[in-house]
Amino acid sequence: MDVRFYLSLAAVLFVTGVYGILTRRNAIGIMLSVELMANALNLNLVAFGRYGAGALGQVFAMFSIALTVTEVVVGLGIVVLLYRSRHDVMVNLASEMKR
């Protein structure tokens, strides 16, 4: 199995995430798509770790996982705040960042 197979798989996942971000209007749906893209990134890191970089790939993937978790925590906090002020989390209704 070639490293290019894993990179192509990650590219397909990433593009799926991009499509999700472009089509979703719900803030949580957009965050799920961002998770897809972050997962594609991690897959790339692990694949490069298996093909040349050794343990460094996994170390970087773990840093990336921790960063993604932080992003989810802060993002969900913002979404909850958005819901509290607007009673809706559709991003096209909240294009201006004020009450």
Binding site: R4, L7, A11, F14, V15, R50, G54, A55
Partner: peptide, 25 residues
């Protein structure tokens, strides 16, 4: 975007030269 990424991946000769190495435990 997907087509661009796939073309880039499959036309880069350095990637084809990579061989499996032991991943760290």
């Amino acid at each position: 975007l997907g087509a661009t990424l796939l073309v880039a991946i499959w036309t880069t000769p350095e990637l084809a030269a990579l061989t499996p190495t032991p991943s760290g435990d």
